[in-house]
């Protein structure tokens, strides 16, 4: 330690010590290689763009022609609808399943476990094909007493069109994954929170809804955002049902018409990217909403060092937070 001879701040320098020095200016560490690397990358990118612009296989005029084609934009709406509806159902079902897995009741717990086992254990594509065949397996949806004449009987094809079958297939599969995400969130909440709520006389369901779930949201949201984006792309598999009005199926239809799949792939990708970007903005705001009360202003939290000038920490905090206030913990009683 070379600076041990330096007087500590605030104490008077020893007589005959070094003359008064101005406070040292801080020079930040420079990173010249970052700039170099960025420049190299920019040059490579420019080369790629110039090259791509000249390649006929990309067929840029076709990209321009179809990017705002009515069929494509309608397909994008269907893709978004599939994503949003399936995710909403999946999240609700996922929360239910996660809570079921946490339940004390072994029957409820096992049901949730079996659900997860089946829907996580088989590929979503296979599930979608199965759902597409549901009308062949169960020709009608019957309500009534088993083995008796049903009260109501609706042909399955009339009750469910391809869109809703796709929604069912996607959401039931996704719910299994959401359940695990929600469960991780529930487990991340300190057990003391449970106890505090219980001790206040809150029922188990109230404790979950008002205390545990809101806190679990902070852990649940980032991976859920991931799942939403993943779902957006999984919708391209619903041609297995078959539902063919979504983005990927539609762009494939068009590419068959013009005998060139490449421009339509670019069109579809651009739309997927655009929708993903919008969803990411939504995620940002959700995360902010559920970060309430966490972090921020760590400087005013307990453990501030008391000094002779400030007699009590409580007073210290008050003057720091609202200087106009003369009140402190002691005299309000």
């Amino acid at each position: 330690m070379t600076d041990t001879t330096r007087p500590a701040a605030g104490t008077t320098p020893p007589p005959g010590g070094s003359p008064e020095r101005s406070p040292a200016k801080v020079v930040k560490l420079r990173h010249p290689w970052r700039t170099v690397f960025a420049v190299v990358l920019l040059v490579l990118l420019a080369l790629f763009v110039i090259d791509a612009a000249q390649r006929t296989a990309y067929d840029w005029p076709a990209v321009g022609k179809y990017i705002f084609d009515r069929r494509i934009s309608e397909a994008a709406v269907f893709t978004l609808l599939l994503t949003v509806i399936s995710m909403v159902i999946a999240i609700i079902l996922g929360v239910v399943l996660a809570v079921m897995r946490q339940s004390q009741n072994p029957v409820v717990k096992s049901v949730a476990w079996v659900y997860l086992w089946i829907f996580r254990g088989t590929p979503v594509y296979v599930q979608l094909v199965f759902w597409g065949l549901i009308a062949i397996i169960y020709q009608s949806i019957d309500l009534g007493v088993p083995f008796m004449e049903p009260w109501v009987s609706i042909p399955t094809t009339a009750a469910l069109n391809a869109f809703w079958i796709a929604v069912i297939g996607l959401s039931l599969n996704e719910a299994a994954y959401m359940a695990e995400i929600v469960r991780a969130g529930l487990l991340s909440v300190d057990h003391g929170q449970h106890e505090a709520a219980t001790a206040l006389g809150m029922s188990w369901s109230k404790t979950m809804r008002r205390v545990v779930l809101p806190q679990a949201m902070r852990v649940i949201i980032p991976p859920t955002g991931n799942e939403v984006i993943s779902m957006l792309k999984t919708t391209s598999l619903v041609s297995a049902v078959p539902f063919t009005l979504e983005l990927y199926a539609r762009s494939r239809d068009i590419s068959v018409e013009i005998f060139n799949p490449i421009p339509l792939l670019i069109v579809a990708s651009l739309w997927y990217l655009a929708v993903t970007s919008v969803l990411m903005v939504g995620q940002y705001f959700l995360e902010k909403r559920y970060a309430r009360g966490i972090g921020a202003r760590p400087d005013t939290v307990a453990g501030t060092v008391p000094t002779a000038a400030v007699p009590a920490v409580d007073v210290d905090l008050d003057t720091e937070a609202d200087p106009g206030s003369m009140r402190h913990g002691g005299d309000a009683r």
């Binding site: 009360g293 202003r297 939290v301 920490v313 905090l317 009140r327 002691g330 005299d331 309000a332 009683r333």
Partner: peptide, 20 residues
């Protein structure tokens, strides 16, 4: 007010000292 925290009503727990 009774526990001396009338002014802290709108603070989140993370912004309060342990005693508060």
């Amino acid at each position: 007010a009774r526990v001396g925290l009338a002014e802290r009503a709108d603070y989140y727990p993370a912004h309060l000292s342990g005693g508060q």
